[in-house]
Write a protein that binds this DNA or RNA. Structure first.
Lengths: 234, 234
DNA sequence: AGGAAGCGTCACGAGTTTGTCACAAGTTCC
DNA sequence: GGAACTTGTGACAAACTCGTGACGCTTCCT
């Protein structure tokens, strides 16, 4: 079993038993492990230590897991730290909610050591494979973004975008190929948990589509879920 | 005969004779065996010890086998612990009811030691082969699911699925090789215990079949029980 | 063989989701 | 202060989804 060299993992759980089991297994696999027993501590530690991965129990005293997750994702716009949710039961609703808020994976208690390490590795591997590219330019298919100049191009020609449209496009490009729920987009584009109708996202997607033009629909609708930028890479 | 290393099995039966026969055979095969003589004990032990497999007699004093099974499956939504039912006669009705509630296999008394160990091994092998994974991609035979992109493929070509069809396929793939009763599918796909005719499941299975195409029937009908995705693995 | 039950498929209508328009409120810039 | 622009929302039509009844075929049982 290959361990990602030297990765640091933050484990957040208020139950000592579970916490120690997690720490034990992860340490044995060679990871550096930090712990937190509540939401506040989790946020502080995440901020201070920049771990490579966070394992987060949904049931926490005080600030609950979802809120921690939301704040994490908000404070860390690049989405660079993957989060695995830990939950008591596989409630479909919880799973959906978790992914909506930006979880990367999901483990149901009780879990086996094998299951745990498999997922941890999978996420670390993926994170490594996609270094958070804050590159100057993003280009996907006919669309191009120059972040330094803050300009967008479609088929070579410059497209005049409003600030909001620009950010929406940026987010979609960064996560190209992956469905983004309306809620996810709202969170990523409209900083705060703005009290905004999810339908508004549709409006802006529509505007973006028109401005980007092109025959093929670059921004695809995934009915019942959200939107996805076509992943015709470079 | 290869034994799954170190697996733990919980045997639930109130008849001392049968219990000891079971314990004897299983121990001889190298399994760790725990026992319970009634429903309440079974649930407690299952919860505390997390066995890898449960062998459950249907005839129990007090809480009967079905109820134990139901509670087990309810407490453990991942379906991670396989259950073999033990019953006196091969009543068709019992068999159906057992599968409906989520049993994974079925042994009729009297049984041979060989039959017992064969089934135990089969189930343990399968459980090991499918760590309950929320992996990014599932691929079974010609069918593939990309959960991040929320796309489905059959023989390489993308298949356009409705949200419901997608979830149905997802569930069938996750539990590939295992029969799923209509009721189980309803519960897994239609979040709530929606008041929906079980026949409706047939309709959607039919639609899925058409969309997935292919010569071989990927989704098999198990008459009187439900459906099963063929387990032609990787 | 005959009947019953299970299953596959068709067609249709109610309900939901999405694209688009129009417009008002807010902002920016001169 | 006013014009141009941005952005959120309600409204509505079009597209799509999905549950159900109906009907005929197959399978099973006696």
């Amino acid at each position: 079993m290959v361990t990602m060299a030297d990765a640091q993992i933050l484990v957040v759980d208020d139950e000592p038993d579970i916490l120690s089991v997690l720490v034990y297994h992860l340490s044995r696999e060679g990871y550096r492990v930090t712990t937190a027993v509540n939401g506040q501590g989790a946020l502080t530690t995440a901020d201070a230590e920049r771990p490579d991965l966070i394992i987060l129990d949904l049931m926490l005293p005080g600030m609950d897991g979802y809120e921690v997750l939301q704040r994490l994702k908000r404070a860390d716009r690049t989405n660079s730290i993957p989060v695995i949710l830990l939950t008591a039961r596989r409630e479909e609703e919880e799973r959906v909610k978790g992914f909506e808020v930006g979880a990367d994976d999901y483990i149901t208690k009780p879990f086996s050591a094998r299951e745990l390490t498999l997922r941890v590795e999978a996420l670390l591997r993926r994170a490594k494979a996609e270094p958070v590219s804050v590159s100057r330019r993003i280009s996907v298919g006919p669309v191009e973004l120059d972040r330094e100049a803050h300009r967008a191009f479609s088929e070579g020609a410059e497209v005049d975008l409003t600030p909001l449209e620009y950010r929406l496009l940026e987010v979609l490009l960064e996560r190209r190929g992956r469905v983004q729920s309306r809620r996810q987009l709202l969170q990523a584009v409209w900083d705060t948990n703005a009290a905004i109708e999810t339908r508004t996202v549709d409006m802006h997607v529509a505007r973006l589509r028109t401005k980007l033009g092109g025959a093929a629909p670059l921004i695809e609708t995934v009915r019942g879920i959200g939107y996805r930028f076509r992943a015709l890479d470079k």
